[in-house]
Write a protein that binds this DNA or RNA. Sequence first.
RNA 1: GGCACCGUAGCUCAGCGGUAGAGCAGGGGAAUCAUAAUCCCUUGGUCGGGGGUUCAAAUCCCUCCGGUGCUACCA
Length: 513
Amino acid sequence: MPSFYVTTPIYYVNGEPHLGHAYTTIAADVVARFQRLDGYDVRFLTGTDEHGQKVQQSATAAGITPIEFTDQVAAKFRAMADAVGATYDDFIRTTEPRHTEALKKFWTLLADKGALYSGAYKGWYSVRDEAFYGEDELTLRDDGSRVAPSGNPVEWVEEPSWFFKLSEYGDRLLAHYDAHPEFIQPQSRRNEVVSFVKQGLKDLSVSRTTFDWGIKVPNDEGHVVYVWLDALFNYVSALGWPPEEGGLYDKYWPADLHLVGKEIVRFHAIYWPAFLMAAGMPLPKRVFGHGWWTVEGQKMSKSLGNAIEPLALVETYGLDQLRYALLREVPFGNDGDFSKQSVVHRINSDLANGLGNLAQRVLSLVAKNCDGKVPVPGELTDADQLLLNAADTIVPQARTAMGDLAFGKLLEGVWSVIGQADQYIDHQAPWALRKTDPARMATVLAVLVQTLRPIAIVLQAFMPGSMARLLDQLGVPSDRRDFAHAGPKHAVPPGTSLPAPHGLFPRIELEKA
RNA sequence: GGCACCGUAGCUCAGCGGUAGAGCAGGGGAAUCAUAAUCCCUUGGUCGGGGGUUCAAAUCCCUCCGGUGCUACCA
């Protein structure tokens, strides 16, 4: 069985989970479920990034130890992943021994390969901005002092640091991007990364001495490892590393897909492959940087207090509805706006009025007029065949769209078949055939039942709960719900008794959202 | 400032050399199996402005205007 390894970033625990985190996790989960349905042996990893100065400060501010603090927040991220229905196989925390021990070995490997050296980090630092600035970014005042673009004072700081020889990897990275155009997606992010690397790379400071909440550098314990080196390695440490014979690493590395927000593409597309090159390890196959959500047209921010809690969204809209709306509304990779109005509209028109209504009208006609059994089809007309053919293209087209992580396009394709089915049922009018030609009515309903099946099978990746219910109502056995069983050969046999139909997606009133 | 991308119907976007498209919204009609959901018909754009290449340009080139992203570190 071919394997497929997909990851979310490990989320930084210096804040509560919000819509952005939920979005990445949901997208990764849809990929994971889809690949499983398509016969892959999937590994889906998520987790939390728990080291660094900000976490240490937040813990201090809360009056607890860093590990107490991260225990609390990590639990919230795990609860978020569960709440959005994520079927992760593993949840890694960078404070776990399996990670810290592996990372120390990785550091030692990098050192042995000559990729690290000891030096001093120097620069103009603004305590208030918590940031270093380049000479050219500063303004020289009349009194000889320098200030940052923010207007805050800066001071010259020198501290001992370990460096990674990032500068040696520019050409190799560019060659890799060139040989593997799909390595960074979407295209716009790829362009940015390429131009960044072309500007020339400086060596990267990979240790810190000014705080101690981190993984100690082997043989130099006054340093802790730079959080990005620490964090990125989770993708490997979670597989068990150094590898054991027949272990997870052998099976799943290199990763097929690192799903990340656009703000951290650089770390995943430059630093991470450079680290791996230095260690002589294979590179992940793809890094996809998705866009950001605004809320009702405004940027999510702490100061505005408009960050949305994923749990509240699930409560308001329903889990499957939320998952659908997020992935349908905006092309993956683009930024989007999350507004009550558009989400409610999307859910009502696509789910309640579209798929839900189609399923309900078909299944209730079957229940009332076919004795609640899958109808026996007669000879097929051109119109019947046309719809069945369309249904048959759903899985292959979905597979193509998923290859590009084009969730929106994938769903659009499925909905175009739903639209065709709506046209078909109106033109055929089985409710009229009931009296004039019952055999023809049975054929029409049989065609519709067969059309709904692949629709439900593919959509399981997006809306697992409701599609399981739909497949129950369609009489599809639970071991026949993968893509291998989506074709017409595996249609539910005529005469199979079906359960009483129930509505799938209630309409949502805007005022209640 | 440099580099990249974008500007197409009221809205969100597709098309990227061969007589302007989709979804939603708006208008009119049909049907009543269905969560008043559905179906049919329809209004609507000099494809940001200007110039050029071409038999032919949203589609290629130049330029201007407007917008967005990136331009490295203590996440």
